[in-house]
């Protein structure tokens, strides 16, 4: 039978704890803070260095200072080694939350664009994907204007030929009339 004895120890990190447990502690910290600030303002850099060392003696230093430890659970099983669990709470501040959401939105938008573009029916259609090649080197052929233009040019040529034919015909008639007159004479 394994008898598990769980001991519970609450660790109070001095700086990150928003609610100090004892009045005296609160007084001490506020006092020390006040001291720090006053010294910093009055004396300058070297004084801050010295005050830092004093503050280090006042509070405990964490390896991960922004990683507030909530509890350490020690599971004690007889005949085995203790299982020690470090329980911590990880909070995001406002800026970090903002960053996370920004990244999320950017990724979503990029994904919509990218994966949306891969499914474009136009690019998958025969109109775009068919084997083309009229020598122009373009995928999309706008030939309508050219066709119309050449049709009008053709029309112009036809009219010109008609006009010339009419003139020539008129000249021929005149010539023939002249010949007939000569014959009559």
């Amino acid at each position: 039978m394994a008898e598990a004895v769980m001991s519970f120890a609450v660790v109070k990190p001095h700086i990150h704890n928003p609610l100090p447990t004892t009045k005296s502690y609160f007084n001490a910290t506020s006092k020390s803070l006040r001291q720090c600030s006053s010294i910093g303002f009055k004396k300058g850099w070297h004084q801050i260095e010295s005050s830092k060392s004093r503050r280090g003696s006042l509070s405990k230093v964490n390896a991960l200072p922004d990683w507030p430890l909530m509890a350490i659970v020690v599971e004690h099983v007889q005949g085995q080694r203790d299982i020690i669990l470090h329980k911590s709470v990880w909070h995001l501040n406002n800026d970090e939350i903002k960053n996370v959401y920004t990244l999320y939105i950017m990724f979503t938008v990029w994904g919509c664009c990218f994966f949306g573009a891969t499914k474009d029916p136009y690019y998958d259609s025969e109109q775009y994907r068919k084997d083309g090649g009229d020598g122009t080197g373009h995928w999309v052929y706008e030939k309508q204007e050219d066709m119309e233009e050449s049709a009008r040019a053709e029309l112009w040529r036809e009219e010109l030929i008609e006009e010339i034919e009419q003139k020539v015909g008129g000249l021929r008639e005149l010539e023939e009339a002249g010949k007939k007159e000569k014959i009559v004479k």
Partner: peptide, 12 residues
């Protein structure tokens, strides 16, 4: 109209 007009080059 401009399929009726021989004098025009491009019609846009």
């Amino acid at each position: 109209c401009y399929e009726l007009n021989k004098n025009v080059r491009w019609a846009d």
